[in-house]
Nucleic acid binder design. Sequence first.
DNA 1: CTGGATCCCAATGGATACTG
DNA 2: CAGTATCCATTGGGATCCAG
Lengths: 137, 137
Amino acid sequence: MVGRQPSNSRASVRRVPGPCARWGDDDAAFIREILDLVGDKWSVLIIGTLADGPVRYSDLAAAIPGVSQRMLTLTLKQLQRHGLVGRRAFAEVPPRVEYRLTPLGDSLLSTVLALADWSADHHAEIRGNQRAYDGAG
Amino acid sequence: MVGRQPSNSRASVRRVPGPCARWGDDDAAFIREILDLVGDKWSVLIIGTLADGPVRYSDLAAAIPGVSQRMLTLTLKQLQRHGLVGRRAFAEVPPRVEYRLTPLGDSLLSTVLALADWSADHHAEIRGNQRAYDGAG
DNA sequence: CTGGATCCCAATGGATACTG
DNA sequence: CAGTATCCATTGGGATCCAG
């Protein structure tokens, strides 16, 4: 999010060096927004948990060990807002609410799975690099 | 990285329900570690900037508008530690240091590019969802 | 030029208690 | 059950100054 600029910008455009090589400034901004969403501590875990079908709020909480109610709710709202997750409330007592992946959310799952696969593939290599780096300074 | 536990833990283990549907507990942990790295505010921008070849420290700083020296240095170290980025210092005066993607970093670039593509593909759709959500409450 | 060391504020996020 | 509201510790990250 953020999106704040230092106001300090003197009139002179100063030639903001430009975007980052590969992406335009506002592409970059949007990509960062998605990255914030995906890189969020709980988003991917939630998406992964919803992968196999609708899950109730309390079951989500149980399936994702460390999450607090606050963060679960907040993250679910973000995901809803972006249209990745759908919410369905049943007018029963006791109340029941189910969350599920939308088609959009499902398409993101595939993409994220690629990243997960990459992680798994290079797990050992990266661990080795870390140890080497930490050891050798 | 945190690692703090509340001490409050009453003797009862209470049976931590287990992992998150899709991944085992420690796979999940490692994936989250990569996600933290990638989801980091500057990592992807840096990786993207290094995509086309070695870049000097000061050029990186110039190419990535909002970044502070501190964060640039810190992020580069993380990337080095994981073996995604290599550093080469020239014993000259004034000093010159070049950073470049390792093959590992390059393979991550491809994966991340997939995410960037996904973002671009669904940019409009997501924006629409956001407006709908914000409007309808 | 390339960073390291400090200071400090704002945001993140967990714990807890309360509500419909 | 499914959240909301509040409080508070931890952390992220910018600014600034210093050093090789």
